[in-house]
Design a protein around this nucleic acid. Structure first.
Lengths: 265, 265
DNA sequence: AGATATTTGTTCGTATGTATT
DNA sequence: TAATACATACGAACAAATATC
């Protein structure tokens, strides 16, 4: 088992070759990833244990651990200690994925206008698709979220909470989408706005207009969704987005570099 | 001389408290990240060296290395060996970000229809914004990419290359966008399609119709862009996307689980 | 071109923490 | 409570890469 390390030549290729050339941990992570794909592992399945990976891959404990950390950062696995523990395949959740993606925009200059340009293009389409499929339970959830801001806010803090709740209304809507790409993108945009809200870099002063118009729009939207009227839902959302954009832009400041902390489990 | 410890204000507060409690590497990664934000480090700046991090954070070498690996996976740093080496802040490129994001869709069922629903909603808007700003150099680059597929393909392999080149036409277009969110999203969608093309899971047989119509549309598009006619450019792209969608859907198969390997530097 | 110093990269032995039985 | 199985963490030694002289 012990190797006298005096074999400097290319070693004894233990099963799958560890793909030398780059940094080992990344290469090992890739190898494990390929192995996951080939064996068709699904979320919940367990990877081989550390010492087995060490043996099969022909690398040391530290390298394997770094590789697992890479996969964990990518959201592919989670590890648990104790008997029966180990690394388990997991699904990369939308929030974690958003956090990873947000890093890409960290050094870019993102404005409210940029975000709303996409929301205007996508959210009307989102509700258009949703109208024929939406369930009663989903509508109930939307109503439940709306209930947070039916009454005017009493304090500046409550104002902020209501804004967050309204954004979460849209986040829930995005989560209902049948199109994972559309749903994720809309959710990501909302999360960007929500993060800005939490950071209090915007929504400085009360804005009753935004709240009331939003509430009215959402009532109409839910009616249209319940009726299964896709065209009407799209039209309402379009008007809602345009109105919100106008209000937001009026009090916008250039917003940058607040994104790195998004999510950050 | 090693450190300019003479600066009394910011630099003398080396690192924050080690944030014990959770798994150490992640906690350490967070601490380093916070430190990066607080000190306003920009791409190209260097992090403290390994042994300094070890000393300041009070953790072992292995833990620091895992933390750095986390940050590297997130696309935040790159490391180099040798004198003057170390960990350097870097910008998360669109391709790397796409690869990270693609993991989120690995266990979801993504179809061509899903991709085109977003392309139809976004790419017309993309060229609409672009028309007033586009430069001659950018138009030249578009023309250069088009030149790859002006002639009909001689082989099935050339057919594939032409398809990739046409997708890269759209990728270039996305890269010109003033809106980073819009640009990235359009680029990501194209990368998904490109990956499918490379994997040869689609585009099995020649499709002269797609090529010729695409070529014609792109000629028109470039004319409109040069003229700065935003409305016309948008209309052309809309028609182009709809036509492409029709053709693609005709020969589509359900496409799943080919995304994990995207990019994979 | 080659020697050397600097810095990250890799390995191994050992010890600790944690969850299951 | 104890025993077991697993990940987690530490530290020292060694290897590889690379800039500078």
């Amino acid at each position: 088992m012990k190797q006298p390390a005096s074999t400097p030549s290319t070693e004894n290729q233990p099963l799958r070759l560890p793909a030398r050339g780059r940094n080992r941990p990344q290469a090992v992570a890739e190898t494990i990833k390929d192995w996951i794909i080939e064996n068709g592992l699904a979320p919940g399945d367990r990877l081989p244990q550390e010492h087995q990976l060490i043996a099969h891959l022909g690398v040391s404990k530290g390298t394997v651990r770094e590789a697992l950390r890479v996969l964990e950062t990518q959201g592919l696995i989670r590890t648990r200690t104790g008997p029966g523990g180990g690394a388990f395949i997991t699904e990369l959740g939308a929030d974690h994925a958003s956090a990873l993606l947000a890093n890409h925009f960290f050094f870019k200059e993102i404005s409210i206008a940029h975000i709303y340009e996409l929301r205007i293009a996508l959210e009307p389409q989102l509700v258009f698709d949703l109208a024929p499929h939406i369930t009663e339970e989903q509508i109930d959830e939307l109503r439940r979220r709306m209930s947070v801001y039916t009454a005017p806010p009493a304090s500046i803090e409550e104002e902020r909470q209501q804004r967050v709740a309204e954004l979460e209304f849209h986040e829930a809507l995005a989560g209902f989408s049948d199109n994972p790409l559309l749903g994720f993108t809309c959710g990501f945009l909302v999360r960007l706005l929500k993060d800005l809200t939490v950071c209090k870099r915007i929504y400085g002063q009360p804005n009753p207009e935004l709240r009331e118009r939003g509430l009215s729009y959402q009532e109409q939207l839910i009616s249209a969704l319940r009726a299964g009227d896709a065209d009407e839902a799209r039209a309402i959302m379009q008007a809602h987005m345009r109105a919100a954009q106008r209000i937001m832009l009026a009090q916008e400041a250039q917003v940058t570099k607040a994104f790195l902390t998004i999510g950050d489990r």
